[in-house]
Nucleic acid binder design. Structure first.
Lengths: 219, 219
DNA sequence: AGCCATTCTTAAAAGATTTTCAGGTTCACG
DNA sequence: CGTGAACCTGAAAATCTTTTAAGAATGGCT
């Protein structure tokens, strides 16, 4: 389970990162709005813990930006501001939970568990990786805000990679999934080439890494 | 939107019922565990507001009973107990939110809105109607256990009907959704015919009803 | 460097889907 | 009952997707 912590205070950020890590969560800790934007654009998170007072902007603004862009990860707001109006504003902007500072770490954990439990009953239908967003329900693909038209085989292939981002997938594993019984063809090569020409435009490093003799990997 | 309020204090219960009703929610107010059980067994609610101290039992016990039975309506716990341990216990038993008394009504509303919003983003991925099952994620259709192969246009057309089962859909509405800008063709006729031959096999009454001069309806 | 196996790319054939079109059927209304 | 508009259906044409196949490029190895 991946958690993004957006917190500028050094002490608290460090504390959260360490505490959550010890509970077997994968934690990414950023201290600015800009870094938070980058982090979320890159991968999916299961929960976002968001402090409102950030050096380069308002957390609430960041939240409404995300919701507007279609990100619907559960957000837990962390804030010293305990004015009722602020809490209402936060919830109405799309926050899922609100924990006033100071709080006990155990209580934070309980809130995180609650949000995760809820999330797990909801099937994830949008997968994001780098600047690629795959909507399984809408069957659409976006490459940094631009819609990319993929045929159904192309989509299926990309879906396998997105579901296993970072992992190495062998040729036979992929082929068997998309073209069962059609080994000994070079279909996979052809479709990898097509995906690359459609997706690997103006990107720094390539999206798909070839592992000679083994298979491929979405980096 | 239907809300179940479980609250034994006369004054507070009345206040909540009236306040929420004025916000256009349908409210059912009960004062005991027993009534709450009955109410939930009878119909679905979109949100449950649960007070912990009840005359005939503990609210937390009721909650764990529900979760055990598979009810996963969002539950907002309302409680004077503000000990951290109690809040943690409530959340871990399956509550989605915790509002300590006393609270402002506006804040309660914000929490309710947040819970409802989250609920609505939970997308249904399998739609069933009569003996037709449509899996939006898997992009598959089953007609009483038998898989039916549909092309993507056929699937899109069926999806519109399944999403609006029973409702009358005008020709222009459907056409505009699937073939934007391609009015004045008889594509809809052609595809309705195809869907019918694929789906209306050995069924009693037909699946699609034609409303002459208007459109169609999934019955 | 030179070789070989693997992977990449391109083009064209094969296959499937979508669209068009024309003739047939049904239904409401006079 | 005849008429016309609306709807249905089958089949051909156009388009798009998938597959096949063959030469080019690449990378590891001696």
């Amino acid at each position: 389970m991946k958690i993004l912590v957006v917190e500028d205070q050094q002490r608290l950020g460090q504390f959260l990162k360490q505490g959550l890590s010890e509970c077997a969560y994968t934690v990414c800790w950023v201290g600015t709005c800009e870094d938070a934007r980058d982090a979320l654009a890159e991968t999916n998170y299961d929960v976002i813990i968001l402090d409102l007072s950030l050096p380069d902007g308002d957390g609430l603004h960041l939240l409404s930006e995300w919701r507007g862009a279609g990100f619907n990860e559960p957000v837990l707001i962390l804030s010293a501001r305990d004015a009722v109006e602020d809490r209402i504003k936060g919830l109405d902007l799309g926050a899922d939970d609100y924990l006033p500072k100071p709080f006990s770490f155990d209580e934070l954990l309980a809130h995180v568990r609650s949000l995760l439990r809820r999330q797990s009953t909801v099937k994830q239908t949008v997968i994001t990786h780098r600047c690629v967003r795959l909507d399984l329900l809408g069957h659409t693909v976006k490459l940094k805000e631009q819609t990319v038209d993929l045929t159904s085989r192309e989509f299926a292939l990309l879906e396998i990679f997105m579901q296993n981002a970072g992992r190495t997938l062998t040729r036979s594993y992929i082929s068997e999934r998309i073209w069962p019984g059609l080994a000994d063809t070079n279909l996979l090569d052809v479709y990898m080439s097509r995906l690359r020409t459609k997706l690997e435009t103006d990107m720094g490093e390539p999206l798909f890494k070839t592992l000679r003799g083994i298979g491929y990997q979405l980096v």
